[in-house]
Amino acid sequence: MVKYVGKRIIYMFITMFLIATATFFLMQTLPGSPISSYNKLNDNQKAIVEKKYGIDKPKPVQYAIYMKNLAKGDLGTSFAFKGKSVNDLLASRIKPSFILGAQAMVFGTIIGILLGMIAALKQNTFWDYGSTFFAILGISIPSFVFATLLQYFVASQWHLLPVGLWNDGWKSSILPSIALAMGPLALSARFIRTEMIEVMGSDYITLAKAKGANGFEIAFKHAFRNALIPLITVLGPVAAGLVTGSLVVEQIFAIPGIGEQFVSSIMVNDFATIMGTTLFFSAFLIVVIFIVDILYGVIDPRIRLSGGKA
């Protein structure tokens, strides 16, 4: 186990290093200059600015400096937000993104598990078809389509909730959270349904029934736990979906989060911010997947990490 964790951590660092390197050099090949928005400057002033951001030096030197700073956790200085460090930028925007993500996650998984359970226990009934159809919608309809439709109907037509922005307390987080929650909801509903149906058909469920357990005890004491454990594995895709979703959903609802900032920094070629955010997202997703794998090994007594997973 320790050996496995150690190996995984080494892989995580290699991956992060590769992403950082790739991001750095890809950024250098970008068309347009990070200071193209400063085009009113004369050559002399440009040189001063370039010197200030260190982009007058040769590429390998820039790379070395960047990696050195990165190792210290310093993501550099934003070009667009003059003089602000990327770390500060991210820190100032993490709260809305975190709230949205967490709400979507909790809401989505709980409703998803419920729907999945209902579908599995009432297999081939109206309930099953209804919840399966709902899950298909959630998986199929892109988050930005869902978000725009929510915004159009719930906010601008029926005026039930704020159209956007982050200035109406919890209320402003409801619509974007729902839009984001559709993914986790649909994924967990489908997953739980399949797992429950499989578990309910297993021998130990028949044995539990043969011991005199009633439907409720079978579903919750025996089946639910066994169906729930593998759900941990969808957390990886769910987290990735939430990050992807946050880029568009935050933009649609004009929420000052990290996703919205990422998209706008792409628009203005703010290299340092793009790189910083990319690394932030990557680190987040890599850590989530790492935690999922470790958790899965700890929680399920059947799984031995040395046993080699398919």
Binding site: Y11, M12, T15, L18, I19, T23, L30, I274, F281, S282
Partner: peptide, 19 residues
């Protein structure tokens, strides 16, 4: 593959498209 799979798809897609 183990290293590549660690890189989030979204990040790769966005970086590639920008370049």
């Amino acid at each position: 593959v183990e290293i590549l799979i660690g890189i989030p798809t979204l990040i790769v897609v966005i970086l590639m498209i920008m370049v």
